[in-house]
Structure formats: structure tokens, C-alpha cells
Amino acid sequence: MRPAGVSALLEVDIERKAWAASAGDRLQVLENVRFTLRHGEVGVFFGPSGCGKTTMLRIIAGLDPDYTGRVVRPPHARIGMVFQEPRLLPWRSVDDNVRFVAPDITEERLSALFAILQLDRHRTHFPGELSLGLARRVAIARAFAVEPDILILDEPLVSLDARLSAHIRDELAALVDSRPVTTLLVTHSLDEAVRLGDRIFLMSARPGRIVSETFIPKPRAARDASDVAAIKRRVEHEAERQGSVAT
């Protein structure tokens, strides 16, 4: 397994991002979004709908070059991304979808990844034969298969039932802990944010800005229910104070 670059640092400084609105004027989406993430840190972005979280992730992933500011990724950084929708190739099996982005992956590693995500029985299935939960797991497997230096997760557990969501969340935590990788996670679930993140960035309504940051020093695996509840209260209090409510 390839270790991620030890000194890797992700620096994000988005001064401004705007969309062209239908009336002809510009709609400001992001403003002065500045943060850095050290190697292996999991930064969670929490904020109201439409505050530009997905736009920010797209900029960091290099999918949207139309913004003012800069994003400095570690040199030759490999990106793994889980989109809101699984974005699997419908004409390729589960196995081949993962191999599409990671053609050099060993059978041993692929099997291990499928075992963690409980996809072993579905390797030969086509995406059309999978439930949404399974398809999301394949998308997660695909993102980890490339051994990313930066992992971008855009609401990976959205629209799943609570039990399945908790299960995949624990699998995600296990994967992140098995190989530390700089991770950006966008979520509307405070529980998910607190259980997965090292730092929680609270974002304002549009134009999105980072209005507060909560650092969680305790390792993920060591956090118990009372820790989670305490951190949630802190973040909720901060959200109320800032008038930023995640919806």
C-alpha cells in the first residue's frame, strides 16, 4: 500500500465564486473560503442547503476553474471522489467500475476493499442491478481503490435509511483510519460530521463563508456517545449563534 505524502498540505483560498444568473447578473456563491488541511485530517463542511459546499468541492477537485483565488494541492496528488450520486458506468460490472479508475489494483487489495464494504457477492453485478446503498458503497470503493492523497466526499450517505447510513459511515471511518488520507466531507448530518471529522467547518448561508471551526482532538475510534453528544451541542450552539442552520 502506498503511503500518502507525509508533508502533504491542502491549502484552499477561494476569494470569490459566482454563477451567471438568468437575469444577467452574477450570483455570488462563495466568498473568502479559506482553510488548510494537514495530511490525514478529515475536514467536515456543515451548512445550509445552497451555501456552496458542493461548488467548493468541485473547485478543489479541479472540475470548476472559473473562480477567483487558489487551491494548492500536494504535488501529484491523487484524488478520490464520491459524488452525491454514485456515477457508476452502467455497462461495466461492479468489479470493472472500480478497475476503470484503478487498473493496476491487485486482486488482493480489491478483495480486501470489497470485503470491508461488504460487496463481495456483488462483484459481477451491473449497477442497474444494485440498490442505491450498494451503488454508493461501490462509489466509495472506487474512491479508495486509487489510494488517494485527497478524498472528497460529497454527501456520500444522503437519502439512505438511518441504519444503512450508520453502517456505511462506520465503514468509511474504518477505511480512513486504515490509511490516513486528507479528506473533505460535505454532509447535512451533524452526527455524521462529529463521528467522522477531525475538524468541523460551519458555513454560512449564500454566499458561503466559513463562520466557525470546531476541532475534535479525540481520535475517531475513541469517541464515545457522550463525546459525540458534547461536540454536537458545541456545534449546534455555534450554528445558532452564527445563524447558520444546516437543512
Binding site: A61, G62, L63, R78, I79, G80, M81, F83, E85, R87, L89, F100, V101, P103, R142, V146, I152
Partner: peptide, 16 residues
Amino acid sequence: PTLDEMASVFAVPAWR
């Protein structure tokens, strides 16, 4: 275009 973006993020070579 979403599949194109996916391939682009994962830096899949043009031929593949």
C-alpha cells in the same frame, strides 16, 4: 457530462 467529470477527477487517460 457527470460520467465525464468522474473520469476527469480520477485522471483516467483519454484513450481509456
